[in-house]
């Protein structure tokens, strides 16, 4: 029972969602949107557990005075403070909650994102070596595209921008499509295995 009931629920909801895609009738739409709402509710409940895990992790660090424990205080207090600000002060566009979003979360996020520029440079430097034919092709394609799409590309050869675009539109497109077909069958098979109960590692293997 401990396995069968979850498996039946998983099977039923999976099949229902597939059928739901085929039926345009309002009953089916209603069902689809209700289940989507339930999903959101379940995610919110799971967030309680997740935040509980975060509090426990940092709480333990502080109590046992593990390395870097003072930073855990930063996480916990800022989380509590932000929640209080949101619940007490509201979430209007002019509220403190939104101001903090714009002036703390947004710059932190954009700066982490901007680190990518540096990492792309160091990753390319370290790994773009013409070790084999395949690696050389990768290197050459990256080069041509990088030069071709820049204003100075045309100075090297007036044909270069068009060549760079060709690489994007022909070989790049072909490989992406080929990968996508494989991905499609891989994920459909995975999803079916889950629904049909063939793959059940989430229940702890085959027993």
């Amino acid at each position: 029972m401990k396995r069968r009931i979850p498996l039946i629920i998983c099977f039923a909801i999976g099949i229902l969602m597939i059928i739901q895609f085929m039926i345009p009738h309002p009953i089916s739409r209603e069902f689809g949107s209700t289940v989507n709402k339930w999903y959101i509710v379940l995610a919110a409940f799971a967030l309680v557990l997740a935040i509980g895990n975060l509090i426990r992790h940092h709480g333990t660090k502080i109590r046992r005075k593990k390395t870097n424990w003072p930073y855990s205080i930063v996480t916990l207090t800022s989380m509590v403070a932000m929640s209080i600000i949101g619940f007490a002060g509201g979430v209007d566009p002019k509220s403190l909650y939104q101001t903090i979003y714009l002036n703390v979360l947004a710059p932190l996020g954009s700066t982490m994102f901007a680190l990518l520029a540096y990492y792309m440079a160091s990753a390319a430097y370290r790994s773009f070596r013409a070790r084999s034919l395949e690696a050389t092709l990768l290197l050459a394609a990256a080069f041509i595209v990088m030069i071709g799409f820049m204003p100075f590309g045309q100075y090297i050869s007036p044909r270069l921008p068009a060549f760079a675009e060709w690489i994007m539109k022909v070989p790049n497109m072909a490989s992406q499509r080929g990968i996508m077909f494989g991905v499609a069958f891989g994920s459909i098979a995975t999803a079916l295995k889950i629904i049909l109960g063939i793959e059940r590692s989430w229940l702890g293997g085959k027993k």
């Binding site: 995610a43 919110a44 975060l54 996480t75 932000m82 703390v104 979360l105």
Partner: peptide, 17 residues
Amino acid sequence: HLFVGVANGYYIVFYWQ
């Protein structure tokens, strides 16, 4: 650590609302 804290506070309120 501030990022993680503030973001989680943000999402707690967001999910509630």
